[in-house]
């Protein structure tokens, strides 16, 4: 049962991921991205990471997708008229990308099943909070600095007037 669900959700995630980059209409791309996010959330639940799943839906599928669609509609990016690269370089790019992907899957299959065993903490949200504020306090605080930098950059690049 778990495996069946895993494969179903993975398949939908991969297919809609491909649709995101092949759609000509930016709004459709955005909606397929939404679908990918939901499938990922489902995969997190299968891994017993309920908190991450909820955050995935609330933050990615909720807030970030609204922003995406808002920007797409604001800029009126309806149809992509021309592709970025001329045909030959694009074909080479796709070829190299596929080669890379095949190589990865090939090596990865060798290590399947042996990877880190699942270590399910009890009461995930509370456990996560404890870890975040004890063991991982330095990266957590540093992430605050990171947000400060991002905010500073957004305000400067978008708003600051040359007075």
């Amino acid at each position: 049962m778990e495996y069946a669900l895993f494969f179903a959700f993975s398949l939908v995630a991969i297919v809609s991921g491909i649709m995101v980059i092949t759609q000509k209409n930016a709004v459709y791309s955005g909606l397929y991205l939404l679908l990918t996010f939901f499938c990922l959330a489902a995969l997190y639940i299968l891994l017993h990471a309920e908190f991450v799943a909820v955050v995935q839906i609330a933050v990615y599928a909720g807030a970030i997708m609204v922003l995406f669609l808002f920007v797409i509609m604001l800029l009126n990016l309806r149809f992509e008229s021309d592709s970025f690269a001329p045909p030959l370089p694009r074909m080479i790019g796709i070829g190299v990308g596929l080669l890379f992907a095949v190589q990865f899957v090939w090596i990865g299959l060798g290590g399947m099943g042996a990877a880190a065993e699942r270590n399910i903490p009890e009461g995930t949200t509370a456990a996560l909070g404890m870890e975040l504020f004890t063991k991982y306090i330095v990266p957590f605080e540093a992430a605050g600095v990171l947000l400060l930098v991002a905010m500073l950059g957004a305000v400067y690049l978008a708003k600051r007037k040359h007075n």
């Binding site: 991982y136 330095v138 990266p139 540093a142 992430a143 600095v145 990171l146 930098v149 991002a150 500073l152 950059g153 400067y156 690049l157 600051r160 040359h162």
Partner: peptide
């Protein structure tokens, strides 16, 4: 820890992206 290194890398990178475009005009 790779996490600390990663967040450091991001703080550095994002600051420098902004600085590279600092001459906005």
């Amino acid at each position: 820890d790779l996490m600390t290194i990663f967040i450091g890398l991001e703080i550095l990178s994002i600051s420098v992206y902004i600085l590279a475009g600092f001459a906005r005009r």
